[in-house]
């Protein structure tokens, strides 16, 4: 699936490992290659036939997401899809998490941005393997991009994979990547009505992290109001309040992760 209109332009999706300067250009053209690959005659037949399809438009993405999920399950990998607006602190949250936990668990990171290797390089500086997907004009990651990134990254069994989606609270909501859980991040420097404005993202997330709480005294963000709005979209969503910069509340996030890891081990025993 091409997430851009620029299928035929350079600037499509690229997948690059942190530390490599060789960019792999991977065009994601719709269908198979040439736009004129389909039967293309110029006769004047008027024979038409209706084909009832009832086919899900996102069916291909969902099938690829199932494939990724299956792959994660077989390898005991826990995958988290981190979604938020730009600037909410996803990368800072990851940097601190990786620095604090990298001796306890094996981590991998897939970074999604329209342009630059900046985030993958920030992650690589922590010593964790990172791969950057540049979506070009695309506004979200899709399951096929993750699939191809996985083949490049080859995460080890029983590891934890963080997928940092493109900063955008709208489009990524629609695209299942095969993750075990989706984590929405909002920061207190944004409006506390974000969950009302972008309900789809909160409806499809299992956890909502409220970041930058060290700045609460200086902003007009009401934590309880934000939570109430998010619960309207998703009555079962969980919340954590923390500051990735100061470290305040990070232990609650680590406990949440450890719980997921314990659950995964439990499932592995049952299988």
């Amino acid at each position: 699936m091409c997430s851009t209109c620029g299928c035929d332009q350079p600037g499509g999706v690229t997948i690059t490992r942190a530390g490599e300067d060789q960019v792999q250009f991977s065009p994601l053209t719709p269908g198979s290659g040439s736009p004129l690959a389909y039967p293309h005659q110029h006769g004047h037949s008027h024979d038409t036939r209706v084909i009832e399809m009832e086919m899900d438009i996102l069916g291909k993405n969902d099938a690829r997401a199932r494939h990724n999920r299956d792959h994660f399950r077989k390898q005991g990998i826990l995958a988290f899809n981190l979604v938020s607006s730009p600037g909410s602190g996803k990368t800072a949250l990851l940097e601190r998490t990786l620095n604090d936990l990298k001796n306890d668990h094996r981590f991998y990171v897939i970074e999604g941005d329209q342009q630059t290797m900046n985030d993958a390089n920030r992650i690589a500086a922590t010593g964790v393997e990172a791969i950057q997907i540049n979506t070009g004009k695309g506004c979200h990651l899709d399951a096929d991009m993750i699939h191809r990134a996985l083949h490049n990254l080859s995460p080890a069994n029983d590891s934890i994979l963080f997928i940092e989606n493109v900063g955008n609270l709208v489009c990524p909501a629609l695209f299942d990547l095969g993750e075990n859980a989706r984590v929405a991040i909002i920061s207190v420097t944004e409006g506390d009505d974000k969950p009302l404005k972008y309900p789809d993202m909160f409806a499809s997330s299992q956890l909502c992290i409220i970041n930058k709480i060290d700045l609460l005294p200086y902003v007009n963000f009401k934590v309880e109001r934000a939570k109430e709005y998010a619960r309207r979209a998703n009555p079962s969503i969980q919340f954590l309040e923390l500051s990735a910069t100061t470290g305040l509340g990070m232990s609650s996030w680590y406990q949440w992760l450890e719980k997921r890891i314990a659950e995964r081990k439990q499932e592995a025993v049952l299988v």
Binding site: P30, L58, G138, H140, C171
Partner: peptide, 12 residues
């Protein structure tokens, strides 16, 4: 993301 929706429809 509507553009990628259109591209998926074209694919189908």
């Amino acid at each position: 993301h509507e553009l990628s929706i259109v591209m998926s429809i074209v694919d189908l």
